[in-house]
Design a protein around this nucleic acid. Structure first.
Length: 428
RNA sequence: GGAGUAGUACUCAAGUGGCUGAAGAGGUGCCCCUGCUAAGGGUAUAGAUCGGGAAACUGGUGCGAGGGUUCAAAUCCCUCCUACUCCGCCA
């Protein structure tokens, strides 16, 4: 959500930005919101004046009542009643206008960073840099489910019976590896100076509507029956919710948090063949990082954050590349975003495992996250990035460390979390 | 889950319909007096947010949140949230 003042003072910048994002349909909205904004301000001024009149009249009535001049008071009462009718009418129109303005403002995209490449969709995202040499094993790498099954690491049949499609039992060493990745990633982030946090896994509806649109909510969130509670789709929901409608102390910034949570998603809609197994599921676990900082620091944090992801993955000996989101593929709230993609030896291509985003002040404006400044308050900048999201990242791990006999090598950094085991062996 | 009490500005706190956008105190800023491990006196300072104005300034909203009653609500009514105490239940 951008500042409506920006539209008042620099509508061309906003229009340019919309064009860069190939959302030309939205161009008329700029003019509409300008007109509505003018209308509502005129109306407000009128209402304010009427209210001022009423306040004065009410005071006068009080004065007269004290002096027991009841009749005079009653006369003024009648006038005020008329006044109030007009106020009520104005209020109704005002509510309508402001709702439409809000609706529009929610859809007008955030101003993207000048460094963001212009492009229509994800096909025009730009590869930035590769880290570690992508491997091409001499043998055929099976689908991740087959790798895991051969290691007795998963029971989908029982899961389907117990909870339905989209759930899993991870078993034995695979389950342990899953936890090891999370624990290692947690410690990695703590070493980077982030504060570890376990947030609520359910949130109230007012937080949900604060962090996403109705359509997103409908497509993703599970509601608890009979309660005003939803299961979180990512800990970002709880973590950003932590800051809704708050004033932050300048000297406590930046907030650098790394949170663990299970994530629950409905995942409505059809899924492709490549999304079988544990790629897209209703329940998974994730370590996340978020930063709330001074506006002047967000660019620096953005660079630091995606580099942390790269470092984390390369430390587990998984080749990755960074891919910059082009203007058209960038979500409306984002200023800039970089995906980290891990190498899949089976598919001989990279696939997304992390997404690092700088939201500028758009999210903070929408949620009322402000910093107390010496000369007035201003909105903070917010950023978020995946640390690791197993089981998905497990796919990358297993494929990259697979041996021809079906066993999987455990990267050195994970061994302390795996009882110093070096390998997960195929069970006979 | 049941019963009770409470939620006012940076903090504590007064306030049961108009004279309260908020007494009083603490805190903080400045000044004075005094002088030694202190204290006293004076004075200033009220947040947030949306408007108008070049500015001085000025209008609206605002007393946990949202509704309602009224010419007028911190004050009365309803719903919700939070905290505390007691009871019940339970990892």
């Amino acid at each position: 959500m951008i500042d409506i003042k920006l539209i008042r003072t620099n509508p061309d910048l906003v229009r340019e930005n919309i064009k860069k994002k190939f959302q030309d349909k939205k161009l008329p909205l700029v003019d509409e919101v300008i007109t509505l904004d003018e209308k509502i301000r005129v109306l407000k001024a009128e209402s304010d004046e009427l209210r001022a009149k009423r306040n004065k009249a009410s005071q006068a009535i009080g004065q007269l009542m004290r002096e027991k001049k009841i009749e005079e008071a009653n006369k003024i009462k009648q006038e005020v009643a008329l006044n109030n009718q007009k106020i009520a009418e104005n209020d109704a129109v005002e509510a309508q206008l402001s709702e439409r303005i809000k609706e529009i403002m929610m859809t007008i995209p955030n101003i993207i960073d000048p460094s963001v490449p212009v492009g229509k969709d994800d096909s025009e995202n730009v590869e930035i840099e590769r880290f570690l040499e992508p491997k091409t094993p001499s043998f055929e790498v099976p689908y991740h489910l087959d790798i895991i099954e051969k290691l007795n690491g998963i029971d989908l049949d029982s899961a389907r019976k117990v909870a339905g499609n989209g759930f899993y039992y991870l078993m034995g060493d695979i389950a342990r590896l899953h936890s090891a990745v999370l624990t290692y990633a947690r410690d990695f982030m703590i070493d980077k100076g982030f504060t570890y946090c376990i947030p609520p896994y359910m949130i109230r509806s007012n937080v949900v509507t604060g962090v996403m649109s109705f359509d997103e909510m409908d497509a993703m969130m599970y509601k608890i029956e009979g309660e005003d509670l939803y299961l979180i789709g990512t800990s970002e929901h709880s973590m950003i919710g932590k800051f809704i409608d708050t004033f932050l102390d300048k000297d406590k910034l930046p907030y650098t948090l790394t949170s663990y949570s299970p994530c629950f998603r409905k995942e409505k809609g059809a899924h492709g063949i490549e999304e079988r197994g544990i790629y897209r599921i209703h329940q998974f676990e994730k370590q996340e990082m978020i930063v709330v900082c001074e506006p002047t620091d967000s660019k620096t944090w953005f660079e630091k954050m995606w580099k942390m992801s790269v470092e984390l993955f390369t430390s587990m000996e998984i080749p990755v590349r960074t891919l910059e989101c082009c203007s058209g593929d960038l979500a409306d709230l984002k200023v800039k975003s970089i995906d980290i993609e891990a190498w899949s030896p089976r598919q001989q291509k990279y696939f997304e495992v992390c997404s690092c985003s700088n939201l500028g002040d758009a999210q903070a404006r929408r949620l009322g996250i402000r910093i107390k400044g010496e000369n007035g308050n201003y909105f903070a900048h917010t950023l978020n990035n995946t640390v690791v999201a197993p089981p998905r990242m497990l796919i990358a791990l297993l494929e990259n460390h697979l041996n021809e006999d079906g066993s999987v090598n455990i990267p050195k950094v994970l061994r302390p979390y795996m009882g110093m085991k070096e390998k997960i062996e195929v069970k006979k």
